[in-house]
Simulated assay, not measured.
Amino acid sequence: MADTRRHYLDLIRQDGVHLTPELAAAFATVPRELFVPTGFRRRDGGWVAPADPDFLATVYRNDVLVTKLNGDVPISSSSQPSLMAIMLRALDVRPGMRVLEIGAGTGYNAALLATLGAEVTSVDVQEDVAVRARAALDRAGITGVRVTAGDGYLGDPDARYDRIIVTVGVAGLSPHWFAQLAPDGLVIAPVEHAGHHPVLSVRPGDPATAAVVCSSGFMAAAGPLGARHAGSHPSSAGALPELAETAPARWSPPLTTVAYRDLWYAVGAWHRRATLATPADWDRTRLVLLDEAGSGGAAIQPDGSVHAGGPEAARCTAVATTLIDRWLELGRPEMRGWQVGLALDGDPAAPIWVPHTWQIVQGRAPR
C-alpha cells in the first residue's frame, strides 16, 4: 500500500501540480478506497467493485470516480485528485480555519480538508449522498467534519467561515455565501464559462472580483446555482453535423491542451455563443461558436484551423478567425491572466453573482 500511495502522489504531480508537504501528507494518508465502498464507474463505462483485482490500483489513479448516476448521467463522484489538489492549494487552508464545502460527494475532499487542520461543514442537496459521505468519514476515522443535507444555495446561515469551496459546477455564487464569509475570506468555485467550469478564486467586495485558478469540468448544479442569466453561454451543443474546413491551420505544432484551453477561455470572454460540441466524425469535443439556431456554427481546432457548417458557416468562420487574431495579438494570454468582475443576475427570486466583465491583467508566453 505504501508503494501505491507513493505512485498516487507521483501521478498527481505529473499534471504539473505542486503539492505542499501538508497536501502531500493528506493525499498519502487519507484512504480513498474507504470513500467508494460499493465501487464506482470507470471511464469506459464499466463498474469497478471492491472485489475486483484492480480495485485499489484504479482507486489510486489520478482520475474521477463516478459513484452515482441518473440513468447514464453522473450526479455524484470523487473528483480528479490533481484538480482537488489545485483547488485545495488555492483555498489556502490553515489549521483551525472553518471551511464550508458545497457538495459533499463521497466525503473524500472533506477528509483531506480535515487532515489539513480545517473544521469542515459539508452541505449536499442529495440526502443519500450526505448519508454515505458521513458513513465514509466515520469508517476512515476522520473527525472535524459535519455533513448535512440541504440546499447549497443557502449555505450554512448559522455560522461564519474563513473559506468556502464549491465542488459542483455553478453558473454563479450565492450571496448567502458572501454573507457567511469572514472579512478576509475567499471562495473557490468552478463557474460556467463556454461549456466548461473554470475554477475561480473569488473575494467579495463592491464589486466582487475573481481570478482564474485553472480549467475544469464539473457536474452542473440545478436550481438557483445553475440558473441561466444574461451572460450565459449556450449549453453544450452535443453533436453537430459534419463540418468542412473553412479557414486553414494557423500554426504548427498544434496548441497543447493547456494552451488550447487558454484560447477557449479568451473566446468565451469575448463571445457569448462560445461553447463545446463534438462535430460528427470527430473523436473529441472542441471549442465552437454556435449559430443562433444552435444547429451549426464554427469549430476552432488546436492548430488554429476553423471548420464550419450550417447556414451561418461563413459568418461564424469570420468571427472565429477574428477572435483567434485577437488572442494572438494579445500574446496568447493564459487563462490565469484574467480578472473577472461579478454582478448579480440569475433568478430574481434567488440571485447569484455571475461573471460580468473580463480584463487581462497578466500576459504570459505560450506553453
Rank of each mutant, 00 (worst) to 15 (best):
L19Q: 05
V125A: 15
A269C: 15
V123E: 11
P74A: 08
Y60C: 03
M219N: 05
R98P: 12
L34Q: 09
G346A: 04
G71Q: 08
G117R: 03
F178Y: 05
A277W: 04
M219I: 14
R132E: 13
A110H: 12
L83W: 01
H193K: 00
L225Y: 04
V212Q: 06
V93R: 05
A298R: 07
A350K: 02
S77N: 08
G105T: 06
W251G: 13
E312I: 00
S77C: 12
G71W: 08
P198M: 01
D347L: 10
R146H: 14
L11A: 12
R13S: 13
W177Y: 04
R134G: 08
H176C: 12
V59R: 01
T357K: 14
A194G: 14
V99I: 12
A318K: 06
V125D: 13
V66Q: 01
L287N: 15
T106V: 05
W338C: 04
R61C: 07
G46Q: 03
D72T: 11
F35L: 07
E334M: 04
W264R: 03
F35N: 08
L200R: 01
A237D: 07
A259S: 15
D44R: 00
G223D: 14
W327Y: 13
R13L: 01
L100F: 05
W358K: 08
D303I: 08
G304V: 14
A227W: 06
G16E: 01
Y108S: 05
P241G: 04
L290Q: 05
E242C: 00
R286Y: 13
D92A: 11
M335Q: 11
V30G: 08
L116G: 10
R315Q: 08
A114M: 11
A277M: 10
V66I: 07
V99K: 09
R367S: 12
G226Y: 09
R228I: 09
A182S: 07
V120N: 14
A57P: 07
G310D: 02
A349H: 10
V64R: 02
Y260Q: 13
L287I: 11
I324S: 03
V361P: 07
M87D: 09
E192A: 09
E192I: 00
A182L: 01
H176Y: 12
V361S: 14
A57G: 10
D63W: 01
P254A: 14
A266M: 14
P241Y: 04
H307Y: 09
W353G: 00
T321D: 02
A2L: 11
A114Y: 14
A239Y: 10
A133T: 08
L83Q: 03
A210P: 08
R41L: 02
F218Y: 13
D44G: 02
N70Y: 08
T4E: 12
Q80R: 09
A179K: 02
Y8K: 02
L88E: 06
N62T: 01
T246C: 07
R32I: 04
L100A: 10
E101M: 09
S305T: 09
A171I: 00
V17L: 02
T67Y: 02
D15K: 03
P157Y: 05
I75F: 09
L289D: 08
K68M: 06
V30A: 09
I164D: 06
I142S: 04
S235D: 13
E242N: 00
A293V: 01
T322E: 14
D158A: 13
P53T: 02
G155C: 04
Q301D: 13
